[in-house]
Simulated assay, not measured.
Amino acid sequence: MASTSDILTFSDDEPPAGETPWVVRPSVAPIDVVGADPSWPVAYAKVADRVRNALGARALQIEHVGSTAVPGLPAKPVIDVDLIVASSADEDAWCPALERAGFTLTVREPWWHEHRMLKLADPLAHLHVVSPDAPEPWKHRVFRDHLRRDSADRDLYAQTKREAAELATNGEETMMEYNARKQAVIRDIYARAFRSAGFAA
């Protein structure tokens, strides 16, 4: 399991010199934040079933995270899913089966908790693959559950997402730049979420 320190710490480090996280480079496209859709949990269930059918016991944990996992929260219509496997660095043990199931490996970050991300076209989803000791799944669940409970932070995040999407789209920015526009507010919400979860006084 991840340490408490790792869960509470955020890393803004750039990739090592000469390295890139991109297996498939992102393209610039309009960023569309839409109203909450009650069908998103159904879409998640389809993604989770596809992962389970592909990996069987190798899928140690599958979790719906991100904004589409929060009822009532506007979001990009992309289902974010955390997948824990025994070793995300051992791609041969899990990646070929997922690729046969329709997923495409797009991000590889050995320097950041051995994180990988795969995309699925239908339903549109991002699958984040990590090992059991990675802190990100813990962060994601704390953030998700806080937003499910806290209407003020849910509204704040919705407003921030809409403003960031408009600015990023008008500026023809990538998704990474859109995410950077939200970062300060996300970190503020995380601080409250961590306190609510009992991680800090």
Rank of each mutant, 00 (worst) to 15 (best):
M1P: 13
F10W: 14
D12M: 15
P16H: 11
E19N: 08
V33K: 00
V42D: 11
A43W: 10
Y44K: 06
Y44I: 06
D49I: 02
L55P: 02
I62T: 00
E63G: 04
E63T: 04
A69P: 06
P71K: 08
L73R: 05
V78P: 04
D80V: 04
D80T: 03
D82M: 07
A89R: 12
D90H: 03
E91Y: 04
A93N: 08
W94D: 04
G102R: 05
T104H: 09
R108D: 12
H115M: 05
R116L: 13
M117D: 06
L118T: 01
A121C: 09
A121V: 13
A121L: 13
D122V: 15
P123C: 05
H128D: 00
V129M: 04
P135C: 04
W138C: 10
K139M: 05
H140K: 05
V142A: 09
F143N: 04
R149Y: 09
R154P: 06
R154H: 10
L156D: 11
L156M: 12
A158T: 00
T160R: 14
A168F: 01
E172H: 14
E172I: 11
N179L: 15
N179A: 15
N179G: 15
Q183S: 14
A184F: 10
I189F: 03
R192V: 00
A193Q: 01
G198A: 09
G198L: 09
